[in-house]
């Protein structure tokens, strides 16, 4: 249980990091129910960049079509958690680098 909690926290931290540094979105806007498109201002091109970044960060492979299901920030956390769980969660803990400062 603790492992799952820490994985979930880690995912949330790294995803939020992407939105703050990678998309320059103020942290106070990052609520789990925030809509990526209406509230956070992403467009479909940004969604592809998000996908590529998450795949590199968490060393996972996400079916591109699943982007269509993702509407809120919570959906992003859930998608990463699901894919990482299926791929073996230790890869997340071991390999995920922090988002670099120069993104």
């Amino acid at each position: 249980m603790n492992d799952q909690m820490s994985l979930s926290n880690e995912i949330q931290t790294k995803v939020n990091d992407l939105f703050i540094k990678g998309f320059e979105i103020p942290s106070e806007k990052l609520t789990p129910t925030a809509s990526l498109y209406e509230d956070l201002g992403l467009d479909s091109l940004d969604a592809v960049d998000m996908l590529v970044h998450l795949e590199e960060t968490f060393k996972i492979k996400v079916d591109g079509e699943r982007l269509m299901e993702v509407r809120t920030l919570q959906n992003v956390y859930d998608l990463v958690a699901e894919v990482a769980r299926n791929a073996g969660s230790e890869t997340v803990a071991q390999h995920a680098p922090a988002l670099t400062a120069n993104v």
């Binding site: 992407l18 990678g22 960049d49 970044h53 993104v103």
Partner: peptide, 8 residues
Amino acid sequence: FTPVFRER
């Protein structure tokens, strides 16, 4: 561009 796209 966004920083994440620039990095990409």
